[in-house]
Design a protein around this nucleic acid. Structure first.
Lengths: 338, 338
DNA sequence: ACCTGATTTGACGACGTCGTCATTTTAATT
DNA sequence: AATTAAAATGACGACGTCGTCAAATCAGGT
């Protein structure tokens, strides 16, 4: 491997001068830059990042630690947002999954510290609280799609599930619906609780009653092995007589919404004429390709990822950081199912 | 940052002895290992990978270069397979997207060479031929989901699209179908051509006729900005009289299959009684959550990624490598739509 | 106690780069 | 031409680690 010394020898200058040219330091004569650059090109010299690091102690690498996020289709946008933000800079991105295994996670942190990673984005698949103590790792960290005890002052960026579902419910009401059902996510996850609260608060704010038989889980089973049952759930609700059933179904996410669509079809109901549907996530693969296009609420994963990456870069560069939990709004995406 | 010297000083031994303990070299007395380990724990010493690299010139990092693959939900399994294979070893994974921009790609290779990456997995979103010359990069590389001129001897791992569609067609025939239509992928992509050929060859092998009006593209537009039109396409085919229309539709992928389902519903046709459907990809988000479960063909992205990663690791370790293009079979996944 | 050979430990330098400070060259001013 | 300040270049060492080889220690056999 060709080193700075080889270049210096060929150009007939000192190592340091080559170093100056490579790092675009000031006070180098144009003629010298040209001469050294020619030698660099001729030899195909590429600086050794590791040797730099030994001197500077900065790796210019940012790590991503996820549970399973980079292996689940929904959160691809999160990674994408992170990559785009990081890609604009000089930093590279190291990615690893814990698979929710503490031993694996420990190994990852260990490796990251060996690599002298400059910062970490700690990303979870579900919006949830994590028990994260930055002092055990000693690397600048931003939590993404999760958060920890505010006392620990770890920056976190999360979606505003509550607002999203609140607004979606208001949108439904604004469209003239008063009988609004809800096929929920797995009640064990935080997003389900936040969204559910948004729905209930919006209904109450408009003085509309909530029928308990209109609220049914669309997902069953334990967190790590749950199973969609929205088709059956929706079918049950929609089998009620026209006078008794809701005129609109809110779905916990777009997969659930899709199964609601199939349930409506199975019962011969027209969407949105007989039953309107609003999803959540704007998971394009589904929301954009279902017919008709799904009305849904965007989960701005791309923005969350990008925003978190920017915060991390700011932290690394020593800029003043606002600690605390930052929420990103979830806007409504109008479609053909309302 | 605490260095090997600090540990040596605390333990009252030489640097080299600490190094020996850290690297588990033989011929170190158990008592010494204990003493040094205690010092390591006390100081929280973590070896500096970069300093190692300066000596050994091996980064223990593998890079992934993709066009957009890590940002598209379908290929998450590919990344997952790679991560699992790499995660079993001492290696870490660096990931970057080119976004199909040559300048970005050049920058990524540059960065990877600066980091002295040990090997690269070059992954494309679509199964296609790429113009890849390993000598310009000088890093061990395995192509994933793509391949290049065999004369260049670059190992490649790809799915067997032809076999998958051939088998799916045979499966349809074995189920008693003789009138088989095909809503295709964008004809511009290689997978569409390979799968199309599999379909035609299987039909011919069974002496079944192919009606040209049964073959319709389900995707329209240029590669980088195409648009699903499978709903309309399928509706057109299925609007033919029961005697004229096919009894089974092959779909270019699972999204197309989903739109075929919606088209059937829109026309009041029952699936699979009136019209059977077979997808492709086994893209779980759709195939597994559509009602009824989609019969489809698995695109073994996880295996492809894992297999390619194993080949790369073998190359890096200097093991004898079979160059050339390796195909991974696409097995049928039975569902309720046939 | 003494020798022999194996085992264990240490001293030193090199990897490739850049920071520090000294030295040389250039330009600007008398 | 002489002086001075500024600009450009170079010599040298340090970063943290490990390879090399020399030194020290140990075990076993006389």
């Amino acid at each position: 491997m060709v080193s700075i010394r080889d270049v210096a020898a060929l150009a007939g200058v000192s190592n340091k001068t080559v170093s100056r040219v490579v790092n675009r330091e000031p006070n180098v004569k144009p003629a010298m830059i040209k001469r050294v650059s020619a030698a660099i090109d001729q030899l195909g010299y590429i600086p050794n990042q590791a040797a730099r690091l030994v001197r500077t102690n900065r790796s210019r690498i940012v790590g991503v630690v996820t549970d399973v996020v980079s292996t689940t289709p929904k959160s691809v946008e999160l990674i994408h947002g992170i990559q785009d933000a990081i890609g604009k800079t000089e930093y590279s991105l190291l990615i690893a999954n814990t698979g929710n295994d503490p031993a694996t996670e420990a190994k990852i942190w260990r490796t990251y510290r060996e690599q002298r990673i400059d910062g970490v984005l700690y990303v979870t698949m579900y919006h949830r609280e994590v028990d994260f103590d930055p002092s055990t790792h000693g690397i600048a960290t931003v939590l993404v799609n999760c958060f920890t005890d505010p006392a620990r002052s770890v920056p976190a960026t999360v979606p505003d599930d509550y607002q999203g579902q609140y607004d979606a419910t208001c949108h439904a009401i604004a469209c003239g619906h008063e009988r609004i059902g809800y096929v929920t996510l797995n009640p064990l996850i935080l997003a389900a609780r936040l969204r559910g609260q948004g729905y209930r608060d919006a209904m109450e704010a408009h003085g509309l009653p909530i029928q308990s038989e209109w609220i049914v889980p669309g997902v069953a089973g334990p967190l790590d092995n749950d199973r969609l049952c929205a088709f059956d759930a929706a079918k049950r609700i929609l089998s009620l007589s026209a006078a008794e059933r809701p005129t609109l179904l809110l779905a916990g996410n777009d997969e659930i919404a899709m199964q609601c669509l199939f349930a409506a079809h199975a019962l011969g109901l027209k969407v949105p004429a007989d039953i309107a549907i609003i999803g959540f996530d704007d998971f394009r693969i589904i929301s954009d390709q279902v017919v008709p296009r799904l009305t849904t609420v965007a989960l701005p994963y791309y923005d969350i990822g990008a925003r978190a990456a920017e915060r991390l870069l700011a932290m690394i560069s020593g800029a003043p950081v606002e600690y605390g939990i930052e929420t990103v709004a979830c806007p409504i995406v109008p479609g053909g199912t309302t």
